[in-house]
Simulated assay, not measured.
Amino acid sequence: MVKSTSIAQEITNTIQKTIGVESAVLHEPEFSGNEWKYLKECLDSGFVSSVGKFVDRFEKELSDYTGSKYAVAVVNGTSALHIALKLVGVEAGDEVILPSLSFVATANAITYAGGIPHFADSESKHLGLDPFALRDYLKTASEIKNGKCINKFSGNVIRAIVPMHTFGHPVMLDELISVAHDYRLSLVEDSAESLGSLYSGKHTGTFGAMGILSFNGNKTITTGGGGAILTQDENFAKLAKHLTTTAKIPHRYEYVHDQIGYNYRMPNLNAALGCAQLEQLPNFLESKRILFEKYKSNFQKLKGIQIVSEPERCKSNYWLQTILIDKEVEHMRDEILNVTNDNGVMTRPCWRLLHTLAPFLKSPKMDLPIATSLEARLINIPSSPKLIGSEI
């Protein structure tokens, strides 16, 4: 039997060989375009907060890039999801289906809207919600009454479903849209990680009633902190803009607010950074794809390890490169994490399953065998586009 330290060292060596350096962080931003120029323009103009030309420009360019009719820039992806859930009608006591294999922000946003996270299983190729397991579950756990999906056990309305595109790999959207339709669920895409990812040639975040993006410092492009709401619905877009600007009725000097709003506006400084980053996005995506191909070639030589690749019908942005260790060696995961990090190669496990976290222990859930297996076997490895350097 091969010792865990041997496998861990082989993985470390493979990563170092692929990236051409001995140490690397998981994902870091790259500022090699007009970032300084646009930020200086903000400073020179004095428009550094929520008013300024770069906010409008960033929203327009996001809309053009993703194919969404409307984009509303906000302070982060969590606030974007919060507002999107409110707009599709999530109310206090409503349940919202989401994968247990997700970042905690997905569940947090549901609770901000007054909802109750209802955890569902994932499938192994897309790493996202399993539409077939979910349909089977809803057949027995829910019923349609007066046009609403009702949880038979809690009596609560199941209002929406939030698929999350894990590490940038699109979920099985056609099948999930079918489930949402049959069970009267609004579909809101958590596309925080998937800017640049396509499903059947269409950008993620544009399939449901609404979608959201994140531009945190570790994302494919960054605005420092920031997010966006995507929608094809003009009324949703107008209301999203209104609610995220404290629900203030436009007036040149009066302060009148017609409902509870939120100070979720993206500052002009952040939007300026985003505009510069968007200009470089095609190169970032190409670098990430080249990095994936190099990892794929080198990891093929290791037994018990596979690199996660884009599923059928999908074009992934490869936000985070990910390896999946075989079940026979999953007990070696922590050893792999320790050895790689001790050697300067930053690796991370995937998130703790959300239903196991203290705030969500009493939340409803289906059986989660695949998510449980994936949690034990997924490891993220260095993924920055700058690791490719001048190869493109």
Rank of each mutant, 00 (worst) to 15 (best):
I15L: 00
A24Y: 12
E30P: 01
K40D: 13
K40M: 15
D44M: 10
F47T: 05
K53S: 04
K53P: 06
V55C: 13
K60L: 09
A73T: 09
N76C: 08
A84F: 05
K86T: 02
A107T: 12
I116E: 04
A120F: 15
A120Y: 12
K125R: 05
G128N: 11
A133H: 02
T140G: 13
T140S: 15
E143A: 15
G147D: 03
K148T: 12
K148R: 09
K152T: 15
A160M: 11
I161G: 03
P170W: 09
M172Y: 15
V179A: 14
D182N: 11
D182G: 03
V188R: 14
D190F: 00
A192N: 10
G201N: 07
G208A: 15
A209W: 00
K219D: 07
T231D: 11
A237V: 05
K238L: 01
K238V: 01
K241G: 08
T246Q: 05
Q259V: 15
I260W: 05
M266E: 09
N268A: 13
A271K: 09
A271D: 04
A276T: 06
K288Q: 04
I290H: 01
L302A: 12
Q321H: 13
I323K: 01
G344K: 02
P349F: 02
W351Q: 08
K362N: 11
K362H: 10
A371Q: 00
E375L: 04
S383H: 13
P385W: 13
K386M: 05
G389H: 08
